[in-house]
């Protein structure tokens, strides 16, 4: 199973913000869309960073005025980008090992989706559940 098949039913919507926008605006977007991270894009819509709720909480703990600062001041610049044909299993390992919770996905220079660690876990759970279901049907001849 690859990233494309996860995005196929998740949708391609990626909520983005520009680096000069404020952290307050970022918090607003996170709350409005009920998500955990925003992809920071420049004027040509290329990702230049990612800002997560964790980044904001950490900064806020140090600096109460963080909300009026630009997103660029606290975003993570070193963004790992996924491809539609990336295997979900290897993506899951990379995310776990490198403590990445959100992976923007690009194809031909365009953002085509974002995968969260929750998405990966759910996809893997559905996969195992499906295998169990299939085996049960075969072994028991029907559902228990």
């Amino acid at each position: 199973m690859n990233v494309a098949s996860l995005l196929a039913s998740k949708g391609s919507k990626v909520i983005t913000i520009q680096p000069q926008q404020t952290v307050r605006q970022a918090v607003g977007l996170l709350a409005e869309h009920n998500i955990g991270a925003l992809v920071v894009v420049d004027r040509s819509s290329s990702p230049v960073g990612i800002v997560s709720e964790r980044d904001i909480v950490r900064s806020a703990a140090r600096n109460e005025r963080v909300f009026s600062e630009p997103v660029a001041s606290l975003m993570t610049k070193d963004v790992v980008i996924g491809l539609p044909h990336d295997d979900l299993a290897s993506v899951g390992h990379t995310m776990t090992e490198r403590h990445i919770r959100h992976l923007p996905v690009m194809e031909a220079g365009k953002l085509v989706g974002i995968v969260s660690i929750g998405d990966v876990v759910k996809a893997q759970r559905d996969q195992y559940q499906g295998e169990v279901e299939t085996l049960q049907t075969q072994i028991l001849g029907d559902r228990p």
Partner: peptide, 23 residues
């Protein structure tokens, strides 16, 4: 609405369509 391979693409075994359809 859509379910199965026309919804998520050709992945998984027959039983994978059960949680998929449930969603």
């Amino acid at each position: 609405y859509a379910a199965g391979w026309i919804k998520r693409g050709p992945t998984g075994v027959i039983g994978t369509n059960k949680p998929d359809a449930a969603q």
